[in-house]
Design a protein around this nucleic acid. Sequence first.
DNA 1: GGCAAATATTTTGATAATCAAAATATATAG
DNA 2: CTATATATTTTGATTATCAAAATATTTGCC
Lengths: 150, 150
Amino acid sequence: MEEKMKEINSMLVEIYDDINHIEEYTIKQGAFNDISITEIHTIEAVGMYGSKTMSEIAQALDITMGTLTTAVDKLIKKGYMERSRSNTDRRIVNVSLTKRGKLAYRIHEKFHMDMVRAIMKDFTPEEEEILLQGLRKLNQHLKDIYTPGK
Amino acid sequence: MEEKMKEINSMLVEIYDDINHIEEYTIKQGAFNDISITEIHTIEAVGMYGSKTMSEIAQALDITMGTLTTAVDKLIKKGYMERSRSNTDRRIVNVSLTKRGKLAYRIHEKFHMDMVRAIMKDFTPEEEEILLQGLRKLNQHLKDIYTPGK
DNA sequence: GGCAAATATTTTGATAATCAAAATATATAG
DNA sequence: CTATATATTTTGATTATCAAAATATTTGCC
């Protein structure tokens, strides 16, 4: 039992580190080598469809709006997203992805999907189901011990 | 299939983020609230027993030695580690944990173990085994597509 | 034995990501 | 129509990071 726990822990730590490195590396090698992981995640948070407000994005990323403002400035300059003031409430700024932003989104999404595919490889449907349930439980458990912003 | 993959992916992303937040939060609340996660990881890389050279630590953390130098400077100032020149080769700097450093190490280790214990608690042995298998596969997949330092 | 090349580390000068608090602009409620 | 609330940006700071230059020491070789 103790042994298995240690293995799971070191798996988690290794996976955590590797994902970081690989995500970084993949971006640097790819077609969009002028953006960082952090920036990809900002693009991810804006989302493929329609637009999001600054507040929504900042909340999703769990960063302050000040941080987000500068991040969005740079991503606009690089051609990945655009800003527009809401017509109904001029305080609100809507951010949406450009063509280039959407392409970057899709490529990053593929990276993630390939990762999941690798996990599922050789799993029977039952195993798949069990894994999913396990992850749901783990996720819920983590949410229980800590809820962001609280 | 596609649906299930998407759910697994978003579970993984959420879990990843939550672990980050929880780790950060736990440190801020605890007895060693003058250090960051990054600093805890530096302490972790120095290790409980004996000492490590700057090169070894930098390689383990995958950061440059310049970055490490400043990190170690700060951790020494805060009383978590110490430096000493090797007697056999005066170019080499050995870094080791102080009592305080070792205590921080143990507390962080306990945090990890508690987390794994919490995860496993809700799992049946069958789920546990499948989760472990999934993690092993993911780990292998990540190693296959990228080997650090190459 | 002494100099050139290699090795280990630190210093320097720069950038990215982040925050809290102040400033700005707009909306809403009484 | 004014005071308060809300959404965002600006300001001033800190931390983590890198690459390249500088420093100190060791090793290899004539």
